[in-house]
Simulated scan of single mutants.
Amino acid sequence: MTTALVTGATAGIGREFALQLAARGDDLVLVARDVARLEALAEELRTAHGVDVEVLGADLSARDQLGKVADRVASTDRPVDILVNNAGYSLKKRFLDNDVAAEEAVFDVLTRAVLVLSHAAGKAMRVRDRGAIVNVSSVASFMAAGPYSANKSFVTVFSEGLAAELAGSGVTVTALCPGFTHTEFHQRADVDMSKMPEFMWLDAPRLVRDALADVGKGKVVSVPGRRYKAIVTALRILPRPLVRRQSRGAHRPSPA
């Protein structure tokens, strides 16, 4: 039986990962701050799919609570076969208009938590010669659009480096880089996305299905949707000064 641990599991892409992993028969460890919502989701998944679901409440910006999750990921008695580092949020204001403590908290969730949990998972999985790490990044990681973009750039490049380190070990690492996705993400960030054209939006269930297919293939960078594949290709080949100019005013997050 496969066990998957999903952070940020109560909403958005994280919730969709939990739904699809449970539907295919995987046991789950669900991590988020809102324990009541976690318990409700856990009961829903147990009832619908007969899988074992463990709830682990944690604020990943707090080092002691992150350590608790890392210990669970590293467990040898109850091994985690799939780690989905999905937890994340954003701030509405520009960097210099935010309190630096708030920026540090986002940094800890988006980058430090990914590093710590990937380290715990990578070591444990390498010993067993199998496993998968999925780090939810963003199309914004290829841009130059403020701290969110920078944090997600770390996630993408870090995932690529870890994938190279684990090559041939039986453990895969995938950076999932979605664009705008219909979830609660922008509403919770209090960002008005009403002017974004519908063709730019991704469907969360389709996104996760495609992501899991890419994980199964061992793909290192997964970009859902043809339009976003084209955008990422362009961002990778355009001169960086032009990318920076195109990114002006896009300090708020693009994905999920």
Rank of each mutant, 00 (worst) to 15 (best):
L212I: 02
G218A: 10
R209G: 06
L207K: 09
K217N: 02
A213Y: 07
W201M: 04
L202K: 04
V215A: 01
I231W: 13
R206C: 06
A230N: 15
P224H: 08
E198P: 04
I231G: 07
A213C: 07
P197E: 06
S222Y: 02
S222C: 10
V243I: 13
F185L: 09
V223N: 14
P241C: 10
P241I: 06
V215Q: 01
P205K: 11
R245K: 12
L212R: 04
I237V: 13
R244E: 02
R206K: 12
R236S: 10
V223I: 15
L238G: 00
D190I: 04
S194A: 07
F185M: 06
I231E: 15
K195C: 05
A204W: 06
K229H: 11
R209T: 09
V215G: 00
P197S: 13
R227M: 08
D210L: 13
D190Y: 07
D192L: 02
D210F: 03
V208R: 03
W201H: 07
L207M: 07
A230K: 15
V191E: 14
A211S: 14
G249N: 10
A230V: 14
Q246I: 08
M196E: 08
Q187V: 14
A213F: 05
P241V: 07
M196C: 11
R206P: 01
I231V: 15
G225D: 06
H251Y: 11
M193P: 01
R236F: 03
Q187D: 14
S222T: 06
D210Y: 04
A204C: 08
V208I: 05
S247W: 06
I237Q: 10
R226N: 12
A230G: 13
S222P: 02
K219F: 03
A234R: 14
D214F: 10
D192A: 00
K195S: 07
K229L: 13
R227T: 04
S247F: 05
V223Q: 09
E198S: 08
L242D: 05
D192V: 01
P224W: 12
L202A: 08
V208M: 03
R236L: 12
F185P: 09
G249H: 08
V232F: 12
P205Q: 03
L235P: 00
P197K: 14
